[in-house]
């Protein structure tokens, strides 16, 4: 059922004020797959994600959700199809985990409607999937970074959208929690067919967890395809200006980038 949603950026130009950040970008998000977007700082990754989630209107081109321009659709209806976890969401002081996660149900509720059984189930399921069931009565601002991130993901999951966009969901997390979060998103994708689009900083994790990898550079789409197709030493050099060697990750079999700096390189990879 979830494969049916399509999300396409058609030649979008995006910016803030007079500053253009992304220019003439085309991207078709593969339905039911995990897409990760990588690129250097300030290359327009987050801007693209904000446009896909209709938070930023393109100055030209359009983002099309299920065949219709996303900006022309009622925002609440869009919110039932597509969820977003921004980079640094804000929690009001003292709010309890359960109350925060429950707010993920907002797009499914009418103005004065009661809290329904379906809402209850969605929240419980979201808490369970993210392993936060034991935290329900705790205040969000008392939690550790890893716990808090899982709570935010739980809020996005409670929204029960078929498309989920995440802006660097692993920031501020240690490696153990990073893997936990990415595994959780993969579970979600495999069990429900949720389409996932996320911006990730870590190239190797991006390559490992992506079905579809998108590399951006200077506001343009440099390459997109399977991680094997996209992640080459040439691409890394173009995107990050960094020499590297790309090998096969012995754990996942996906490509893995080994950066080459000015130090600590044994020949023959030593830079000239």
């Amino acid at each position: 059922m979830t494969d049916s949603h399509t999300l396409v950026a058609e030649h979008v130009r995006l910016g803030y004020g007079d500053r253009t950040v992304v220019d003439g970008l085309d991207l078709a998000v593969p339905p039911g797959r995990i897409t990760t977007i990588v690129g250097a700082n300030a290359c327009g990754k987050s801007t693209l994600l904000r446009a896909l989630s209709r938070l930023l209107a393109p100055s030209s081109g359009q983002v099309v959700l299920d065949g219709k321009a996303v900006h022309t659709q009622p925002t609440k209806a869009v919110a039932r199809t597509m969820g977003l976890l921004p980079q640094s969401p804000i929690a009001p002081e003292g709010i309890a985990v359960a109350d925060l996660v429950a707010r993920g149900r907002s797009p499914h509720q009418r103005m004065l409607a009661r809290w329904a059984v379906a809402d209850e189930r969605a929240v419980e399921e979201a808490l369970e999937l993210t392993g936060t069931t034991d935290l329900v009565d705790r205040a969000v601002d008392e939690l550790s970074g890893g716990q808090r991130q899982r709570v935010w993901i739980a809020m996005a999951l409670a929204q029960q959208t078929d498309i989920l966009l995440l802006d660097e969901p692993t920031t501020y997390l240690d490696i153990c929690h990073q893997i936990e979060v990415l595994d959780l998103l993969t579970d979600l994708n495999r069990s429900r067919g949720t389409t996932i689009v996320m911006v990730l900083h870590d190239l190797n994790l991006a390559a490992r967890y992506a079905d579809h990898l998108v590399a951006m550079c200077g506001g343009r789409l440099l390459a997109s395809g399977t991680p094997e197709e996209v992640l080459t030493a040439d691409a890394v050099e173009q995107v990050f200006g960094l020499r590297s060697q790309v090998v096969s990750d012995p754990v996942s079999g996906k490509p893995m980038v080994l950066p080459i700096g000015r130090h600590h390189a044994v020949s023959p990879a030593t830079p000239a």
Binding site: R50, S53, R54, L55, T75, K76, A77, V78, A79, R80, M82, G83, L84, L85, P86, S88, P89, I90, A91, P92, R103, G104, S106, P107, Q159
Partner: peptide, 10 residues
């Protein structure tokens, strides 16, 4: 929760 989260929630 911020404008972005609020918009994302409809």
């Amino acid at each position: 929760h911020g404008d972005d989260t609020a918009s994302a929630l409809g």
